[in-house]
Amino acid sequence: MFPSSFDYVRASSVSEAISILNNEEDAKLIAGGHSLLPLMKLRLANPSKLVDIGRIGDLSYIADRGDHVAIGALTRHAAIESSDVVKASVPMLAYVASLVGDPSVRHRGTLGGSVSHGDGASDLPAAILALDATLVVTSASGVREVAAKDFFKGFLETDLNQGEVLTEIKVPKATGGWSYQKFNRRAQDWAIVGVAAVRNGSTKISLVNMASMPIRAEAVESALSGGASIEEAAALASEGIEPPSDLNASADYRRHLASVLVRRALVEASSN
């Protein structure tokens, strides 16, 4: 298994990457390559050119910025998982990073890549959604910021346009209660259903693999803010949601799992 032929260029800066992307419609960024290369090997993606941003050293950092933690887009899952800053200020994010794939995947995959890929079955996009992170996007026309909840648009579709690079993820500190429930059959697998719960003032809940993209469990959130009990709120986990069906879980089983996992997440988040 190997990809179809393509051209390759390594960008030494964000602006260089942007200018290549702007000149070639079919060019694609590659960061860690751990979402893109598997697709290319199966020939489900066949870009004509890869623009490697993996070596842009100044996009790999974790910085305490007072009310939030700023994470460079090229920061690897392994670095997030073991970062003292993240563990202290956004413990859920460190925990979620530690559940992604396996250690070798975590040595290569980047937060920016995972978020840009926007897979509804991935853990980190759902985590930053529950954490109300802000995404910093750079293009030839400058820098813009997008709230996580406006970023994910559909199946592997995000707010990013060709010629834009996600450069930083700003994650508000969240040291209140939290829980991440990842339900899978083998440790290395993606979640069949996952639930992130963050108590930071209000309670925010996001769902993994319950839709074509990462989503918030809005019905649960508003029930909770309306004073519903955990049990009552959890029962609404898949309200208004059409979950996918596959070999591991039909839609009805997914709905059931979502309720169980939301309840467990809320119980755990209120006890830590």
Partner: peptide
Amino acid sequence: LITSTLADYLVPSAAE
């Protein structure tokens, strides 16, 4: 065959 890769066909690992 919908379990034609080792991502879908669940050969367990040490963790299981």
